[in-house]
């Protein structure tokens, strides 16, 4: 009982941004050292899992696929048919590998957010979504320049079909929305969703302890709070899949915009 009350007394509430900065793994347990933390480990683990999974699944492809091969093919087929070709058209097939990689990487990284005992997503640190957004950003501009040539690409994406006297009004808006808002919103959307999800779970889990800590008669409320945590975990699963999908679809849509001819 003494141990239990000690544990209860230690619960920090409310949760803060500090809770996203976990102690270092190497060197063990050090604070303020972020070179190798749980987050880093999870990102490397995701990358390794995805590489190994697809290598193993496609090592000996069979006409009647094994379960693993079926799963890998379903993932790739889903992204190829329902995202790449659907959004970009026949030219989208050559982007399918990148989009599939992006989709599976984000999905798995998000998924760590609700795996019991792990329960934090690397994407709840803005650095990872931001870098993914930078990759997509550089890619769609590069693809556009390759397809149209430098001048024509920027002419296409900055100069809307409009009479000359409103162009000075419109060009800054086009520039801002096409080249500044896009990468920013890609990164922030994913980051904010994962951050908020983790925060929600923390609030309801720790809140249960905090209430119990304040007064033992609050136990029923604590139990409701923990039940909410479980319910929210299922909600998070939805958010996780949706955000992976949205990031991939928007990347595809930007590539489509870069490849499109005159509007």
């Amino acid at each position: 009982m003494a141990v239990q009350s000690m544990v209860l007394a230690d619960v920090p509430f409310p949760p803060s941004v500090e809770d996203f900065y976990l102690p270092s793994i190497l060197p063990w347990g050090e604070h303020d050292n972020y070179w190798f933390t749980k987050i880093t480990a999870l990102v490397w683990l995701s990358a390794a899992l995805i590489i190994i999974f697809f290598l193993v699944a496609y090592r000996k492809p069979q006409l009647v696929p094994s379960k693993r091969q079926w799963l890998a093919e379903s993932l790739y087929g889903f992204v190829r048919n329902n995202i790449a070709i659907e959004m970009i058209g026949p030219a989208g097939v050559r982007f399918a590998p990148y989009l599939t990689t992006l989709f599976t990487f984000i999905l798995l990284n998000n998924f760590w957010g609700i795996v019991p005992l792990i329960q934090i997503s690397p994407n709840s640190h803005i650095a990872f979504p931001a870098f993914l957004a930078v990759i997509s950003y550089v890619m769609f501009i590069w693809v556009g320049i390759r397809h149209h040539g430098f001048v024509k690409y920027f002419k296409n994406s900055l100069i809307p079909p409009a009479p000359w006297f409103i162009l000075p009004l419109l060009i800054p808006i086009e520039f801002f929305s096409n080249f500044l808002v896009r990468p920013f919103s890609l990164a922030v959307r994913l980051f904010a969703n994962m951050f908020a999800g983790h925060m929600l779970l923390l609030v309801f889990t720790l809140g249960g302890f905090a209430m119990l800590n304040a007064n033992a008669w609050f136990l029923p409320f604590s139990i409701v709070s923990w039940a909410m945590t479980i319910a929210l975990t299922f909600l998070e699963f939805l958010v996780i899949c949706l955000q992976a999908y949205v990031f991939t679809v928007l990347t595809a849509s930007y590539v489509q915009g870069a490849l499109a001819d005159e509007h």
Partner: peptide, 12 residues
């Protein structure tokens, strides 16, 4: 699903 035909009439 890879074996599936890509959707008919995808927009070009």
């Amino acid at each position: 699903m890879t074996g599936q035909e890509p959707p008919k009439n995808p927009h070009g």
